[in-house]
Every structure is written in structure tokens, then in C-alpha cells.
């Protein structure tokens, strides 16, 4: 396991380097002064001058890249003048809200999506299957931020049941804080949930159909298990393997979804931060956010791999 860990870290390295190089390339290819790109448009003139000196922006490209890498290694992602705070601090703080939203919505999405897909597979080519199949495609075709706005239109504007934005209220009416957050989270989490639901449903359907053709499913039937047990306990467990793989592969798509959802619902996470940084032309935050998101995906992939070993005893890491 240790050897495997070491190898994984070696594999991670090039991806991070690629993301860093892209950042560096952007700074240097951007029209105008690279120092401004590094500092953001709100930075005072003195800071830009200082930056130019500390990064040696007049030095040759390779030397500049070296300085840049060293700074990154020390966790220095720059300073945001729009927020007057170091970028890393900002990102770490905002990442919490994103994680909360993503984890909760994905928990339900994977659970229900997989169940729906397995149910459709069990009733292959019958009414339930058709309904689930077409319903999920339809859902899949709706832009996530549009779903968000429709949710706001219905539940916040028309019915006035739920708040449409933010994470907490100014006036909590004596509610405990976590309840306040939970109430605020219902709409954005539902939105992200609806966005990924069809992915898991479609995947589970396809892989359960695939597994259902296998011999050990016939064995399970022969033993006398009920159809429900055959599908939900025997086929599904095996069909989960591709779901886990895809969940890992689609982490970056998930972050994309989170970015847009947070924008719609003003949820104070990474995505909302990116949106605000776009309007403020706060380039250090945009670049830091990109690097940070890359790291999140890599870590997520790693966790998914560990889950995979647990689900499939045939996988041996050597």
C-alpha cells in the first residue's frame, strides 16, 4: 500500500505541474503587463512594482518560472486586493461551503440515481424504464443554472417557502445556526442533486443491464433469491464499480456544476468566489482557484481509488 501511495503521488505531480505551467503561460501571454495580471486590477501601483521586483519579472523566462514555482511550493498563491487577503486563505475558507454543498448533494444523487438506474434496468424496456430513461435525458439537457433559477422562481418567489440566496440570514429568528444553514442549502443542494442525478441513473442502468447478463446472476436466481434481492443486492453491488469510476472521472464536471450553482444561489463557496473574481478581474484568485480545483479533483480521484479497492477485491495494487 505504501509503494502504491508513493506511485500515486508521483503520478499526481505532472498534473499539478501542467496546471501550474498553464497559469504561468497565461500570465506571460496575457495582453498587457504580466505584473498586473499577477496582482489583479485593484492592486495599488506600489504593490505591482514590488511584485515586479520579487518575482524578477524583468529576468529571463526560465528564471521567472523558477521563482514562481518556489513561491507556489511555499503555498504562496498571491494576494487578493479585492478581498485584502492572501488567496490561499480565501480559497481554504470558501472551499468549506463548497464541500458541504457537494458532499450532501452527491450523497443523495449517487444513492437515488443508482437506485433509479437499477430500477430501470430491472424493468428493462417496460414503462418504468422508459419513463426513467426519458426523464433523466430531459433533466440532463437542462443547464444547471437554469434549473437553479426555475427552483428560485417556484420555491422562493411564488411559494415563498425557502430562501433563494446566501448561506445564513441576517436575522436568525432564534434558530440554531446549523438549521439556518440547512434551510439555505435546500435549494442549491437540490439543484446540484438534480444536475448529477441523470449521470448516475444512466450509468447504473447501463452497468446493471451489463451485469444482469452474467452467470452469477443466474446463480443468484437459481438459489431462489427474489428479483428485488437479485438486482438490488447482487447486481447492484457489482454495477457500482463503474459508478465509482465515473464519479471519480467526473469530479471536475462536478466542480463546474458547483461553480454555477453557487453563482445562482450566492452560496459563499469556491464557485461564487470565482464569479466575484471574474467581475473584479481579480486574477490571483482566478489562478489560485484553478490550481486549487485541480488539486481537489486529484484528491477526490485518490479517495475514489481507495473506495474502489474496498468494493472490488480483485484489485490489487502492486
Amino acid at each position: 500500500m505504501l509503494r502504491y501511495l508513493a506511485r500515486r503521488i508521483l503520478q499526481i505531480f505532472p498534473v499539478v505541474l501542467l496546471a501550474v505551467m498553464m497559469n504561468f503561460l497565461l500570465i506571460n501571454l496575457a495582453p498587457g503587463d504580466p505584473a498586473v495580471v499577477m496582482a489583479g486590477e485593484h492592486a495599488p501601483v506600489e504593490y505591482i512594482a514590488e511584485l515586479r521586483k520579487s518575482y524578477g519579472l524583468d529576468a529571463p523566462v526560465l528564471e521567472r518560472l523558477g521563482t514562481y514555482l518556489v513561491k507556489l511550493m511555499h503555498g504562496d498563491l498571491g494576494y487578493s486586493f479585492a478581498y485584502r487577503r492572501p488567496v490561499l486563505e480565501l480559497l481554504l475558507e470558501r472551499a468549506q461551503a463548497t464541500m458541504l454543498l457537494v458532499l450532501i448533494s452527491q450523497f443523495f444523487s449517487i444513492l437515488l440515481g443508482t437506485w433509479l438506474g437499477a430500477y430501470a434496468a430491472r424493468h428493462h424496456n417496460r414503462i418504468a424504464d422508459k419513463l426513467i430513461s426519458y426523464g433523466t435525458i430531459l433533466l440532463y439537457c437542462m443547464p444547471i443554472f437554469w434549473i437553479g433559477m426555475m427552483l428560485i422562481m417556484i420555491f422562493a418567489v411564488k411559494l415563498q417557502w425557502l430562501p433563494s440566496s446566501g448561506m445564513t440570514s441576517f436575522m436568525s429568528f432564534g434558530r440554531p445556526r446549523w438549521i439556518d444553514i440547512a434551510i439555505h442549502m435546500i435549494l442549491p443542494a437540490t439543484c446540484l442533486f438534480l444536475h448529477t442525478l441523470p449521470i448516475y441513473a444512466k450509468l447504473a442502468r447501463a452497468s446493471v443491464l451489463e451485469v444482469a447478463r452474467e452467470d452469477f446472476i443466474t446463480t443468484a436466481r437459481a438459489i431462489g433469491f427474489s428479483e428485488r434481492v437479485v438486482y438490488m443486492r447482487h447486481a447492484l453491488r457489482n454495477a457500482l464499480l463503474p459508478t465509482v469510476t465515473v464519479a471519480g472521472l467526473s469530479l471536475s464536471a462536478l466542480l463546474t456544476g458547483a461553480l454555477l450553482v453557487e453563482t445562482v444561489f450566492a452560496w459563499p463557496g469556491l464557485g461564487r468566489l470565482m464569479f466575484e473574481a471574474v467581475s473584479a478581474r481579480d486574477y490571483p484568485v482566478l489562478m489560485g482557484g484553478f490550481l486549487f480545483a485541480t488539486l481537489l479533483v486529484i484528491i477526490g480521484n485518490f479517495i475514489v481509488d481507495v473506495i474502489y479497492t474496498y468494493l472490488d477485491p480483485r484489485v490489487i495494487y502492486s
Binding site: F216, R221, A222, I223, R237, N238
Partner: peptide
């Protein structure tokens, strides 16, 4: 009724043992 008869009254060894067992249990 068929489910109750299976494996209790009549059991089967399938043609392909290599794939007849669930690989993840």
C-alpha cells in the same frame, strides 16, 4: 412457490463454474 423449490428441492451446478460465483463476495 418456485423460489421455495429452488435450491431446497432442486439445485444446479452451472455449465461454467468460472463465472458462476459472484466475484465481489
Amino acid at each position: 412457490e418456485v423460489r421455495r423449490i429452488r435450491w431446497q428441492d432442486i439445485a444446479i451446478v452451472f455449465q461454467n463454474a468460472m463465472t458462476a460465483l459472484n466475484p465481489v463476495r
